[in-house]
Simulated scan of single mutants.
Amino acid sequence: MPQTVVITGASAGVGRATARLFARRGANIALLARGRAGLEAAAEEVAAAGGRALVLPTDVAHHQEVEKAAELTEAEFGPIDVWINVAFTSVFAPFAEIGPEEFQRVTDVAYLGYVNGTRAALARMVPRDRGAVVQVGSALGERSIPLQSAYCGAKHAVNGFTSSVRTELLHDGSRVRITVVQLPAVNTPQFSWVRSRLPKHPQPVPPIYQPEVVARTIGYAADHPGRKQYYVGASTVATLWANRFVPAALDRYLARTGYSSQQTDSPPPVAGPGNLWQPLDERPGEDHGAHGAFDESATGRSPQAALARHPALAAGAGALAGAAVLRWSRARRTGG
């Protein structure tokens, strides 16, 4: 029997790449996002790769729409096996320049959208005592950076929420599993889509990875959801270790470099409202695919992500990374 998979944010970026991956497995895939042009194009790719697609225009910030999408998915494909939460939006700006309505909107999509998706999934999986929920998180959910306060806050909230739900499932002896895939900087259309008040074009903080690198880890996490989380990219691991051992030094480093590293030398995107309130792939011809504007500087491989699929090797690599951070910290303190 083919798997039934729900992917939010499936019209572009990581969600789009993940839909392609599950399509190659022959899965039945419910594609959720706001932009119909992106969804229709994603559905064509799913069919071409050997899967079956169901297009469900959905704003994940509204729990009624998410619940309806879950109902339609099971009516079309049968029980949901895997639910993958990816959808988000953001605002690139200092906190003081983000309005209350904008901050709430980011929170409603990037945090409560995950809550809504998880609720709809568990309402169906728990009674059957099977299924997996994969939360697509970020290194920024453990180590915040400037200019992304709303997004970082939402990703921190996703981590806390997911840990709570995980312990409840364990308490109940449920065989339903929930896991998180923590992302590095990824080359997706978001950096041309999101609302920005920066003087230059936003960019992911290098090193930059292609969305297919993330999709491979999401696919593995869906197959092996018993682990608490998966890290993608050596930069993610290094950032989290640095935040654990030298957080004050990392604060100062990000204060010094965090503004410039998130902007290119190019002018900002064409003036407009961004995709905060309305999708930018709504009409025919507006599909943007999985990749953003940084193909030339993005890598399609991550040795660390491959290691993450082998726990013993990953533990050894993490210990080495931690030792390197400690040596760096001691050298800073001693002036060596």
Rank of each mutant, 00 (worst) to 15 (best):
A47K: 13
A221C: 00
G153M: 09
T167K: 02
I218M: 14
N116D: 11
L39N: 12
S90Y: 01
V82H: 09
V115D: 14
H201P: 08
F245M: 02
S196M: 06
T89H: 01
A12H: 09
T8F: 08
H224I: 09
H62C: 08
G15E: 04
A61E: 13
P303C: 10
T118W: 05
I80P: 14
G335I: 05
A69V: 03
A27K: 01
A61N: 05
N116G: 11
V66Q: 11
G300D: 12
A121V: 06
R52A: 12
W83F: 11
V270H: 06
A255S: 05
A319Y: 00
S302C: 02
V165Q: 14
L276Y: 04
V82R: 06
A49C: 04
A37D: 07
L307K: 01
H310G: 10
W328F: 11
S302L: 01
R195I: 06
A70I: 01
L326W: 00
G219F: 05
W328V: 15
P279E: 10
V82P: 03
R252F: 14
V205I: 06
P189G: 05
R105P: 01
V115Y: 11
A47M: 04
A132S: 04
P202D: 13
V165W: 07
S302N: 06
F95D: 13
R130Y: 01
Q203S: 12
A323E: 05
A234F: 00
R333E: 06
G9R: 00
T58A: 14
F245L: 05
W193F: 10
W83K: 14
A324W: 04
P273T: 02
A43H: 12
Q278N: 07
V246K: 07
S260L: 07
G78R: 08
V86G: 03
L147I: 07
A323T: 08
I208L: 03
A47L: 03
D287G: 10
S163N: 14
L276Q: 09
R301G: 08
W277L: 14
L72G: 01
V133P: 06
V55E: 15
R330M: 07
R130F: 00
A19C: 10
I218T: 12
T217D: 03
R166E: 15
A306T: 10
A222Q: 06
A53V: 12
G318S: 15
A87L: 06
S297T: 01
Y151D: 10
F92W: 13
T73A: 11
L326M: 10
R119E: 09
L39P: 12
H288W: 07
